[in-house]
Amino acid sequence: MKKMIITATFFIALGQTLAYAGAVEDLLSRYKAKGAKNFSAENGQAMWVATYEDAKTGMTRSCETCHKKNLKTKGEHQKTGEVIEPLAPSVNPVRFTDMKFIEKWFKRNCKWTLGRECTNQEKGDFLLFLQKQ
């Protein structure tokens, strides 16, 4: 019996590292531990639709440049045309289940779009907004 419990726990744990439903909650508390205050989906949305000018190219960039206006449909890489799967977890449930993946893309996309890394506060705001989609 004990063995079975251990085995079952092992498999559940393994399943969770692959697609962890609590990824957003964990990240939010991590950001708070680093000094972020209460998060706001409204702020997240405002930053999401805002446009930013790239100093190097003069190009106007926004999250919607690639993810497009409707988060429930596919996006497209602005240069290569590579398909980006929908961001909205309501239609694409694997979204926001992998903390390493989320952090990797925050780093890349904040730097590309805003020209700098996002703060913990901003990342939390974004997550709260996106999670509701």
């Binding site: 079952a8 092992f10 559940i12």
Partner: peptide, 11 residues
């Protein structure tokens, strides 16, 4: 629980 775990891996 086991089934859920296995399904996750298979997926």
């Amino acid at each position: 629980a086991l089934a859920v775990g296995l399904a996750a891996i298979a997926g």
